[in-house]
Amino acid sequence: MLEVNQNKFLLALAKAGMTTTDLEAKAKVGRTTISKVVNGNTKIRPALVGKLAKALNVDVEQIVDFK
């Protein structure tokens, strides 16, 4: 599991000019999943992080924290 940084994620979303609905469609993930990330339940599988980063057009490193 990777830990998504909520602030970095929201910043990437804003920079992309996308709504969470846009991201759901582009990343092909459900509303519940996006909601969990936006609301801080941020431990998610690497494949999902990859989908979100690709949809936001950012590198994975830009939305996760490494510990």
Rank of each mutant, 00 (worst) to 15 (best):
L48K: 11
N5E: 08
A14V: 14
P46K: 14
Q62W: 04
I63C: 05
K43H: 07
I34K: 01
K36S: 13
K8V: 05
L2G: 00
V4N: 00
T42L: 04
L10W: 03
A14T: 14
T21Y: 08
N41R: 10
L52D: 03
F9Y: 10
F66W: 15
L10Q: 11
K26L: 09
V64K: 03
T33G: 03
K54E: 15
E24H: 01
A25P: 00
V38D: 03
D59W: 04
N41T: 12
M1R: 06
N57P: 00
G17L: 07
M1Y: 01
K8I: 10
L2K: 06
A53T: 09
G17H: 06
A16R: 09
I44T: 04
D65H: 07
S35A: 15
A53W: 01
F66L: 15
T21S: 09
F9A: 02
T33S: 10
T32C: 08
A47I: 13
K67P: 06
K8R: 13
V64G: 01
A47Q: 11
A47M: 13
L11F: 06
L23F: 01
S35N: 14
N41A: 10
D65T: 13
K26M: 07
N41K: 12
M18K: 12
A25V: 09
T42Q: 05
Q6I: 15
V49F: 02
D65Q: 11
Q62K: 14
A16D: 08
V29Q: 01
V29I: 15
E3V: 10
D65N: 11
M18H: 07
S35Q: 12
L11W: 05
A14P: 04
A25T: 10
T19H: 06
I44M: 09
D22I: 09
V38C: 06
Q6S: 11
V64N: 01
N7E: 15
G40V: 08
Q62S: 15
M18Y: 04
G30Y: 04
G40Y: 03
K28W: 02
R45C: 12
K28I: 11
V60H: 03
L11D: 10
E3P: 00
V49H: 02
L48G: 03
L48M: 12
M1L: 07
V37F: 01
K36T: 08
N57Q: 11
V4W: 00
V4L: 09
N5Y: 04
K28V: 11
F9N: 01
N57G: 07
F66P: 00
L11G: 04
E24Q: 13
V64I: 15
N39G: 09
I34D: 00
R31A: 14
E24T: 03
D59Y: 09
L11R: 11
